[in-house]
């Protein structure tokens, strides 16, 4: 039987030997991204797991150019790279930021917002694995409610909700922002190609599996990613100039616990007496999904009235 979608990469734009952990999302993400961007691409990488995965001096995992830069200012560095390439007549060479959630939600937030506001012609990829994983699992403002990290250990698990990065990025009125999952490769590759072909500031936030950080079985990275989408913990949607479009409506009622119970970072929530916390997460997730549906509807209504 022919597969519905053939996502086997025929022309690899990365070299073998990435230094990622087993089951890490970065390598798979970058393999697909690089195959879509092509070799004549400049990647700008702030401090992140990918700084390591891309290879120490003098190695380069990518068949493209890589500028390693400071944690807080990858979009600003990319702004300079972009401007210089443009001045040298290389307007078609894509400039792509590869950042983690810490480098985007926290320390690089202002720089990212600045680049988005200026409409820099940059593709920004954020691999959201929900913590500072490269330094050994510390809480970021992308860390999910209820998760345990080394800076929110044991009963001190994270008790605040992650920042709505997509909402904030979308509010910059940029031409294209989308979420993606490695478990939905056709959707992800389509979004990568669309982001490549759009001019201006574009951002893709990809759900990043992280077995050491999430305390998961490396073999289950894709399964957990699929469950994150199905349970609406990580919905797939696009924002085009403030208009939301949901790309996947889960068909069955998948409770968040299906996804969370496979992750050691949530193990404590399944102990007796913590049912109310799980319930709170389920309610918040449902509410976020309803809000997303409403946002999608607002866009459709506005479009119909114009």
């Amino acid at each position: 039987m022919e597969p519905l979608y053939d996502f086997v990469i025929k022309d690899e734009k990365v070299h073998p030997g990435a230094l990622s952990c087993r089951g890490c999302g970065w390598s798979l993400l970058v393999r697909h991204l690089a195959s879509i961007m092509g070799e004549e691409t400049v990647y700008v990488v702030p401090a992140s797991c990918f700084s390591i995965i891309a290879g120490p001096y003098p190695m380069n995992e990518l068949k493209g150019s890589v500028v390693h830069t400071i944690f807080a200012a990858a979009p600003a560095t990319a702004t300079g790279v972009r401007a210089a390439l443009d001045r040298q007549g290389k307007k078609d060479v894509p400039v792509v930021v590869l950042a983690g959630d810490g480098g985007t939600f926290d320390i690089g937030f202002q720089s990212m917002s600045g680049a988005a506001t200026r409409g820099e012609n940059i593709l920004y990829i954020v691999n959201n694995n929900g913590a500072y994983m490269n330094t050994g699992i510390q809480t970021s403002s992308a860390t999910p409610f209820g998760a345990v990290t080394t800076t929110n250990p044991g009963p001190g698990y994270k008790k605040t909700w992650p920042k709505d990065l997509m909402g904030i990025v979308g509010a910059h009125n940029i031409p294209y922002a989308a979420t993606g999952s490695l478990a939905f490769m056709e959707d992800l590759r389509t979004k990568m190609a669309r982001a490549r072909d759009t001019k201006g500031f574009r951002l893709l936030m990809i759900d990043g599996p992280c077995p050491p950080g999430h305390k998961t079985d490396p073999a289950l990275s894709i399964t957990i990613g699929r469950l994150a989408v199905e349970s609406k913990l990580f919905p797939l949607f696009e924002i085009e100039h403030l208009n939301y479009k949901i790309n996947h409506y889960p068909e069955r009622d998948c409770p968040v616990t299906e996804c969370m119970k496979l992750q050691g970072r949530f193990r404590h929530l399944f102990k007796e007496g913590n049912e109310h916390i799980v319930k709170e997460i389920q309610e918040h997730t449902d509410k976020t999904w309803s809000r997303l549906l409403a946002l999608e509807k607002i866009g459709q209504t506005l479009e119909a009235t114009v």
Binding site: V44, T69, A72, A76, A84, T117
Partner: peptide
């Protein structure tokens, strides 16, 4: 958006 970004952008352009 800041001097930090100014110098980071300066760095990026100088790299090219």
């Amino acid at each position: 958006d800041s001097e930090h970004s100014v110098f980071a952008a300066a760095m990026g352009a100088a790299i090219v």
